[in-house]
Design a binder for these strands. Sequence first.
DNA 1: GTCTATAAGTAGATAGAC
DNA 2: GTCTATCTACTTATAGAC
Lengths: 230, 230
Amino acid sequence: MASEAKEARRAGARRRGQADRRAAILAAAARRFAEFGFEATTVRQIADDVQILSGSLYHHFATKEEMLDDIVRDAVLDQHARALRIASADCEAEVRFVTLIAEELSALAERIEAYAIIFNERKFFRRSAEFAYLIKARKDAFEAWRSVLDDGVREGAFHAGIDSYLTISTIMRMLNSGADWYRHEDGSPLDAMANYSLEALTAFYAGFVLRSVRAAGRTDAPIPGALPRR
Amino acid sequence: MASEAKEARRAGARRRGQADRRAAILAAAARRFAEFGFEATTVRQIADDVQILSGSLYHHFATKEEMLDDIVRDAVLDQHARALRIASADCEAEVRFVTLIAEELSALAERIEAYAIIFNERKFFRRSAEFAYLIKARKDAFEAWRSVLDDGVREGAFHAGIDSYLTISTIMRMLNSGADWYRHEDGSPLDAMANYSLEALTAFYAGFVLRSVRAAGRTDAPIPGALPRR
DNA sequence: GTCTATAAGTAGATAGAC
DNA sequence: GTCTATCTACTTATAGAC
């Protein structure tokens, strides 16, 4: 076997090992940040969790904030892309609206720690110039949701007197504050909410929201299903 | 003038002065805690705000946590008493429900800083034995809200299939997360939400919630007014 | 009641040996 | 890549002078 191939394989393994270590550290950090908060978590605690000394963390990360950024970045950017994609789908506003709710809850369930952190540390993010991208992405996603609601009013599906700013703020806060359903891997729920299945929660929220925003007369129409995920 | 009277007056002034100082410190602390969080605020910052040295704060308070307790205690206990009083009022469940929402929003507006702190530091409170009373009071208030919703279902005003746990969780989170509307005294809103009047917000939330929980057919009935405040 | 001065502990982060 | 050792800064809280 050519020595270049050997060398390449070794380098690959090295990269994988390094990436695994980094991922393990991020997992420990995410868990701590989600449960106790970013500022209340010390780098020593994270290091202890992965059985390493605190100084050694700085071989993988330049600062504690870099860990935070790694944990939340993809979640926020995916959320942004998802909202824009769904908002511009070619179908009735009500279907798009249900899809926004369903996919948001699904993402929240999949990355509950990242979402808990994004929600709980929002004051920190707002103050930090490094995280301006996060605030911007979430604001754009907000506008995408809002445009779907406005489309629905124009189509006559949602009632005309609606305040779209207040309504979307309320709905997004409602969904996002659910990130407190954070559940430990050991199974202990931090909130009784963790006992509900994703399907049950989606049906509940889609119903709760649609009954509120629908035009008079349409209130008892069946709740449409979400668009298929792509 | 009898010297006892003079002495009493002087003692009163002393108490007032001391109480004023204490109140000024608490006001500064509340503002910082609400905007930046309890753990992110240092006693030095609070001391700077009232132009005193950090060590001198400890003449007025034993610990930083005692300040926090002083700020949130009355707000939580009042919230608890209010919920129980309204829940046991002698009238239709829907009227009690609207009253719960109206008075909750009113209290939130009056003590926005305390409410912001209670909401944002909930993980801290949950971990601290000293604040067990707070968790208990809020849990009892939750059950009072829930009993009103259940009464409404029994009366036929609210729809039968409702999950009262999920519904009340959602509504209370929705209202409480609004504590983020925190506005500075200098008038700068931290959130555009601060531009709405209390009356507008109450009408919005009462409508949003009632449309969701009402029984089929009752959806377009007028929203009842809240009970008079006593 | 506020000051000066400081204790005792912990934070995030770094340098260099192995 | 992790360890040992440590730096600098900052934390809450205290002691005693004024």
